[in-house]
Design a binder for these strands. Structure first.
Lengths: 176, 176
DNA sequence: CGCATTCACTTAACATGTTAAGTATCTCCG
DNA sequence: CGGAGATACTTAACATGTTAAGTGAATGCG
């Protein structure tokens, strides 16, 4: 329960170490990336045990959920939806296919593309996980407050939008 | 190269698959974990290029920043501060030590503990990265709005606190 | 003192994140 | 029609996330 940041609560020496402290930066523990990371971890910690019991990782679950609402998708589109990078998705799909949770077949029109869909086993697995998952989500909503949750989501969306196209100033296509 | 799952521009879901949709769940793309993940990714995408130029990963940078404000810390305490799991930290410290960016020495009172501190080279490296990093943070703040940013951070903190002690067994994550 | 327990890490093993290459297709233009 | 370039993935390589087991050093207790 006790959370102690970078506070040298030990001896009490004011500290004046070997080469420390010379670069003045915001308090590290309050940076936006850290806040987002901690918040997300706090949330995911609620779900991981349940998923684990069903033999699913967070990412595998994301993929199944993304597939559940559509008939079939191309890998690239699925990567966007499940917010996974191509290589990760490629590996995970290989495993999920081996477990018969998804199905894959190359598109007729374009042999490069492969269409991915959830299998019956996949649907069954989802059905067994969804109740617990929803219950956890409901508890989180109850604790934090439905309204605040909506507000938070809205702000997160705004943050995303306000940063869109800021760091992509190189690498690939100038336009996009 | 620009391979990023960043665009939630999925074109909706016609939906009506073979074995799909039977388990009614919230729209996957709007789940809290996904919102947090996307927001954090949007933010980190701004920083990664700069860090990379200096040969640092996001986690290595977190560690250096955590070390910059104190004389020395135990590994466990550092793990809490930098929000890293023990094993990850162990590996990263090994590498940072090999690069002479940090120093380590076992505590006299307790041979099990090792005290970690940033080295002169580490401080120098930080000094060369900090300006860019601060500039990026300033731009993010400008785009999103300082007030909204503070609000967001506050909400994230509340979310964290409201979920504290919900997961079955705590004591297993980098936070507490 | 003797020894089981606890503690503070470290190693190991497996899955994903991330970037760079590689491979097979497909498109388009000369 | 043919080859350069773009596409849609897949592989590879390295770093981290995550859980479990291992190691050496302190503690507690009989």
């Amino acid at each position: 329960m006790t959370k102690k940041p970078a506070d040298p609560a030990n001896g009490g020496a004011p500290a004046a170490g070997p080469a420390a402290r010379q670069v003045p930066m915001r308090d590290f523990s309050r940076s936006l990336p850290m806040s987002l990371l901690r918040a997300r971890e706090a949330v995911m910690r609620q779900f991981r045990p349940s998923l684990r019991e069903h033999g699913l990782t967070e990412q595998q679950w994301r993929i199944l959920r993304a597939l559940a609402s559509i008939e079939a998708v191309e890998v690239t589109e699925l990567a966007r939806t499940a917010f996974l990078l191509g290589p990760s998705l490629s590996r995970i799909l290989r495993d999920l296919e081996a477990r018969n949770l998804i199905e894959r077949k190359t598109a007729k029109a374009d042999q490069r593309r492969s269409m991915v869909s959830i299998s019956k086993d996949g649907v069954k697995l989802m059905a067994s996980v969804a109740p617990t998952s929803e219950a956890i989500y409901a508890e989180i909503t109850r604790r934090f407050g439905a309204r605040k949750l909506a507000e938070l989501q809205e702000m997160l969306g705004e943050l995303e939008r306000s940063l869109a196209g800021l760091g992509a100033s190189e690498e690939a296509s100038p336009e996009e």
